[in-house]
Design a protein around this nucleic acid. Sequence first.
DNA 1: GGTTATTTGTTCGTATGTATC
DNA 2: AGATACATACGAACAAATAAC
Lengths: 228, 228
Amino acid sequence: MNISKTKRVSLVDQVISQMEALIESGEWPVGDRIAPELELMEQFDVSRNTLREAIRSLVHAGLLQTKQGSGTFVCSASVLGVALHRRIQQSNLLETLEVRHALEREAAQLAATRRSKEDIKQLQIHLSTCQEAAKSKNHQAYAEADIQLHKAIAVATHNHLLIDLYDHMTEALHESVHHLVENNSCLEIHLQIHHQLVQAIISQDSQQAMEAVNSYMTQLKTDTGKLS
Amino acid sequence: MNISKTKRVSLVDQVISQMEALIESGEWPVGDRIAPELELMEQFDVSRNTLREAIRSLVHAGLLQTKQGSGTFVCSASVLGVALHRRIQQSNLLETLEVRHALEREAAQLAATRRSKEDIKQLQIHLSTCQEAAKSKNHQAYAEADIQLHKAIAVATHNHLLIDLYDHMTEALHESVHHLVENNSCLEIHLQIHHQLVQAIISQDSQQAMEAVNSYMTQLKTDTGKLS
DNA sequence: GGTTATTTGTTCGTATGTATC
DNA sequence: AGATACATACGAACAAATAAC
């Protein structure tokens, strides 16, 4: 048997890992206040300084938020989400759309080959929500339904890494996409392309699905160009 | 004029910001040891615990690394890289390859439209390095050159977000890809596809570039299937 | 509105484990 | 082996912001 060196994990790192697990598992729900330092000291059996170093790290990572006199609150469940969000805000919209295009195209293709009956059901539900929003010319509601539809496509790939990345990406793009969709005067064309996309996924035509994504993203990119 | 509430930035956050700036500006070069805690306490004029909370945050973010008894060193990994690395290790290889496929395909297309003369030069250099490694049947060297070639393709897109994501992704996949390429008995086919890919990018044929990526990734995925 | 209790922010002191010379 | 430099960890205390009564 191989003999490996024993790892000495610092107390701070142990506390950090446990806290991350508690947050990601939802045991410490987003928005909730966590126990005060004195209690956590007992729970983890560490000194205040050690505990504070752990908390500080998670604050800097974007998972926690501290308010003097009030407490410490959970503000995000995913390290990746926060990191992606920060990185995306540093780059311009076109760069981000190109990356999104890559994910979107892959998602459409995979969804077309792997979609289950349940996936199809979800796609149709969200598509009809889009249609209703378009009919009533409610741009706000349309933007929201559009995001949900795209998330459903990602889910239909059954690739959890892709789903995660796509989710965090759309979240980071949330405001920009809203802005774009809301300023898009012609929802009908937009909707029609999405109708084609969903149909292609249902009939397992990955080539058609990819083309629909391409035309959809091309429109988004030109819209972006107009604004800037 | 708008009157905004005054922000009370905690000492720890101030220290963190300054340290990040020092590292990014290169004033604290990567690999160097930073001053010991006692000196830093004087420089920033904060107590030991405050300083340690700041250092701990940057350690967790991947910018610093501490070695007890030795000192604290700059190791400049980005937050995104660490987060992606962790997330990728949680998912299986096929999932990761599919996401990589998405990025790779987009990169090839964009590189074909945007590559500069300097980009072409770099591509040819790395391609010839691959060829030499293939001739001498040095699988280890081939895997390394292969990674460099793909990075060069990403650079040719001039999309910094895509470059970043791709870099972090290949880094997280480093061992797996090495393993795959080294076990690939037939380097010639692999090399030939890459030759086509580079040629397509140089002649600005994005369709051809995309197809080359597709056949390359298909081979990778089937190789993965054989192993598992 | 003011007082008090709670909670985080910051500092100092001390002891210990570890690496380097 | 010893000495020095450094990070790790604990404990106690006070300041500042907030919440509750």
